[in-house]
Structures are given as C-alpha cells and as structure tokens.
Design a protein around this nucleic acid. Structure first.
Lengths: 120, 120, 120, 120
DNA sequence: GTGGTCTAGACCACG
DNA sequence: GTGGTCTAGACCACG
C-alpha cells in the first residue's frame, strides 16, 4: 500500500499532491520501474477521496510518462523512468538555485549557506 | 515608485505576489523602515489592478507587522522590522534544508550540491 | 443555524461583529470543535449581506485559528481550539482589570465594585 | 500642559481620543472645574495635529457640558461638572457589567471574578 | 487624498 | 456546492 499524506488546507490541489508524492517515491526507489501501483478505485478508497481525483493524478503521471495504464491489467511504473527522473532533477536544481538567491537577498552570504549544507 | 512584476498565469494570487515582492524589497533594504509606500489607489493604478486587491495585500503585510497603515496619512514600512526579517530568514532556511533533502533523495550528494552554490 | 445579530449603526464593522459572535459561541460551547459552520454563501444569505463580508470574517477567524476552511468541503471549528480560548480569556481579564481601574478613578471603591458583581 | 497620547492606528478617531482623555483627566481630578485648558491652536501644535481635529473634540466636550468656551477669554472646565461625571459613571458601570457577562461566557464564575478584583 | 467597509457579481478550481 | 480571487464601484470618516 502506498502511503500518501494529504493536506486539505494547502493551496496545492489534492491531485497534484498525489502526483508529486508518487514521483518522489519513484525517485527514492520506494516504488520501482515496472511495479504495479493501486487501481484508481483502490487508492481513492484508501485515501477516502473521489476516484475522479485519483484519475486526474494518474492522467498527469501517464502524460509525464511516469506510469503506464494497461487496461484490464492495471497501472504500472514506467520502465524507462530515467529520463523522467532527469527532468525532475533539472527542475529541482532550478528551484534550489532560486532559493539560494532568496537567502542571499536576505543577507545570508555564500559561506553561511555552505555551512548550512555541511551541518546537515 | 515600486516595481512589481505580476504573473497573471501563476497559481500564486496577485495579492500574494505583491506581499512577497514588498517583503523582498524590505529585506533587500530597497525600502527602509519608516518609509512611506504608495497608497492603495496609487499602486493599484500603477499595476492596472483593482484597489481591493492591493488592499488585501496591505492587510496581510500589516498583519505580519511589515507595514502599518495610518488612516488619512498613508502606509509605512514598520519601524521595528528586524524581528520580522529574522522570522523570514528562519523560514527560508527551513525551506532551503528541505530542498537539500529533496535533492539528496534524487541522488545528488553533498559535494555536488556545494558545487551548485559555488558556480553561482 | 447560527444566530447573529448585526448592528449596522455601530462603529464596529459587520465582519468584526461576525468574528466576535462566532468566537463567543465557540467559547460558550454552542458550537463545538470539529463542527461545521454555515458556508460563506449560506451565512451571507441568512444575514442578508454580501458573501465577501462573510469571507472577510472567516479569513480573520482562520488567521486566529478558530476555524479552518477546506476548499470544496466547507468550514469547520478548529479541533485544537483550547489554546485560542485561553488566549481569549487572558485578553478579556486584562480588559476587565483596566475597567476596574477606570471605575476606581471615577471614585468607585473596591467594595462598591464587588457589590456590582454580586447583584448580577 | 496636558499630556495626551494619540494612537493613530486605532479605529477610534483622534478627536474622540482627545475627548475621552480630557474626560478622564477631569474625572481623576487632574484638571479641576473652572480651570483653563489650552487653546485649540496651542493643543493642536503640541500634538502635531490639525486644529480642526481639536476643534471637533472641544465642540463635543462643550456639547457634553464638560467645558465652556468663552470667546476671547479661552476654554474652561465647566464648574458644574458633577452631573457630567455621574453620567460617565453610569456608562462605565454598564460597560463593566457587560464585561462581567463576557467573562462568565468564557467559563469564569463569580467567585473567580471577585478574586480578580481583590488581588488588584 | 487616505485608508476602510461593503455591495454586486463574475469567474475559477476542485471533486 | 464549496472556498478563493478579482473587478468595478459606491460610500464613509478623517482631517
């Protein structure tokens, strides 16, 4: 079973929270290429939400080639997931650089930032 | 005049874009404690948006103690802005650390992360 | 249905009257933690006022952590309302003590003040 | 010189803050019946505000028979101030009783309230 | 002219 | 149907 924490108060819609959680699990290797994931109805029941919402998340993931749906057989993590992960990396690195600029604008210099990473 | 770039396509609402832009200007020292900022109507006219939207942004900033509004006098950057900025720093550092964890989960190690900063 | 009496002549704005009425109902236990309150539109219709005004009241209550709004689901009294109520008590006791000082400054002594309470 | 602290952020207008401060000083005996108070222009200059604002405050005080303006001579605290003070007392006692009801609605009972006064 | 309140009403995403 | 955003615009008190 996939553990997905939903935040109903967040501005981020539920379907997007599902998308990014599954992407993160794939990136972390928690779910592996070729592995089957829950059906729309099953996941919807587990999360106590509307199946349409899960459907929307799966549609997006399929569009991003993270999963593939084989009708009657079920839904699976795409086998050629590497390119997907590379795109994800590029995105996150971009965000990271923006965050660095923000810290600098708050008066935190490069040396202090590096210390933050080292302490980690 | 305050330069604020609005992105009408973004999920982030206009009023929030105004809030964070002004916060950033304060953090950068572009606008100083005690300094007057444009009136609601003036900024609304400059940005081509409705005064109510600017009002909402100013309400949030006042709530955060970044600005203070004096009826009939105008709106001013709060004189005791330091604590606000400290809180902001703490928040952003927290986000930064989360972002680092995310990068690690994508298989980017500490050395590579530090390189990202140095190149900057 | 929540009973809210509005005074349109008062200096206190409508949205603030809504805020304090709901706070009082929560304090009195008339509305319980976790309980759903009327939707913005419904309350606005009941009170014969504009939904934006109710929205503003709900925004303030959410900011004070008295309620929490879940998009598409509705608005609910916060489950961890106790701390909020404690703060409220402290505030009101402070006001009460100021009021006592005022009465004393008008020449009413402690014994007379206690009589005022006992008659109640 | 009369010491008046103005709060520009309060919802209460400046002229009303002046009214209630002078009333309080009279009630406290800081200013005595028959005593002269500053001219409109003088007080306005001291407070750094518009003379019209002080004028409005003095008009209200004169209407309440707290002061009397003798053109060319100046402005004086009314000699028959007792009835004024009595009205004030009645008002404040009314507020006090409302505050007691509020405390009760927050779950503080009569015994606890009396303790609050005794500790004072 | 300034901030503050409120109405009327449109449009949106979400589910 | 629900909350959220935004516009257009009126009216108010204050000074």
């Amino acid at each position: 079973m996939i553990l997905i924490n939903l935040d109903y108060q967040a501005r981020t819609p539920i379907y997007e929270q599902i998308v990014s959680t599954i992407e993160r699990y794939v990136a972390l290797g928690v779910i592996k290429p070729g592995e089957q994931i829950p059906s729309i109805r099953e996941l919807a029941a587990n999360l106590g939400i509307n199946p349409n919402t899960v459907k929307k998340a799966y549609d997006i993931l399929e569009n991003k080639k993270v999963i593939t749906s084989l009708s009657t057989k079920g839904t699976f993590i795409s086998k050629q997931i590497d390119k997907v992960l590379d795109n994800r990396k590029t995105e996150e690195i971009k965000k990271f650089k923006e965050q660095i600029e923000l810290l600098k604008s708050l008066g935190i210099d490069k040396e202090q930032i590096i210390k933050l990473i080292d302490k980690d």
